[in-house]
Design a protein around this nucleic acid. Structure first.
Lengths: 148, 148
DNA sequence: GCAGCTGTAACCAAGTAGATTACAACAAGG
DNA sequence: CCTTGTTGTAATCTACTTGGTTACAGCTGC
């Protein structure tokens, strides 16, 4: 089982916004969908989540989406949380109903919980160290190489 | 999306093996299923994975499963890998076909890959620090409290 | 008013997990 | 030898999630 691609699509969309120049015209959901290669509705759904998390502002009918903060102030953890690929603290799932008549069954959940929380926190801390700005700069750098 | 409960069930099964006393009789898949509260076939499937990973030995027809190593020599990362809840290096999924005509689309995968690999590695390193022995001792300690 | 875009609901196809049934293969004891 | 009990595994089923798609209401700005 994998973490949903909603997360990587969201980063993609935010990278588009971060590197977009106003002179290129409006960045509509349809144009973003063209870059991600998916359906505009999928993009709008994700934009809705990013908007709810306060990462972007969307002009409802006239088109156009803008970052609410500087790219340097948006971490990949913010995006991860915003896209709710995982309910908070629930990356691992533990079997729900072990047998309470058995010592192991009675205590396995508690015994595992701390460890799994720590593992999940380690993952999230890594995501917190990377900003949208870094991703955008990385893309620009790679583009330059590709062009040259 | 969550990481499959196969992992927590596998830890449960191994904890049963680690705390099991031979005087209590054979630990069959049916008895383990009773503790986990699932179907014996689910247990046997997971035992098959643990066996393939060299963590347990199963006596084919006469019943009985045993740890191949000391509990202190089995880490939760070993179990995580054995249960293949995630193909190696693929915890995150990235949308497959971004538009190569777009600079962002052309480079998003490469730009994200390193970061996501690091996040995943951080999670796995945390799992590597915990052994089956620690889990088993934790369960025993909690059991004692519950009994007293 | 009209064109174009967003916001959402509704539905579909595909993939995955876990539960369950069924059965072949085989070890061990009488 | 043959019966019993267990493992190994295939096949099926239901439930759930995801991403894709269609449809349409609501709204903005010219």
């Amino acid at each position: 089982m994998q973490i949903s691609s909603r997360f990587s699509v969201a980063v993609h969309v935010l990278a588009l916004l971060a590197t977009h120049r106003p002179t290129d015209g409006l960045l509509t959901s349809e144009r973003m969908a063209g870059s991600v290669n998916t359906n505009p509705v999928v993009i709008r759904r994700i934009l809705g989540q990013l908007k709810k998390a306060g990462l972007v502002e969307v002009r409802p009918a006239s088109g156009g989406t803008f970052l609410s903060r500087q790219p340097a102030a948006i971490s990949l953890l913010d995006v991860y949380r915003a896209t709710e690929v995982v309910e908070a603290g629930q990356l691992f799932s533990i079997h729900e109903q072990p047998n309470p008549a058995c010592p192991v069954g009675r205590n396995i959940q508690a015994a595992l919980n701390d460890t799994l929380q720590r593992a999940q926190a380690a993952l999230e801390q890594q995501l917190a160290t990377v900003t949208l700005q870094q991703v955008a700069l990385d893309i620009v750098a790679r583009t330059a190489v590709g062009v040259g």
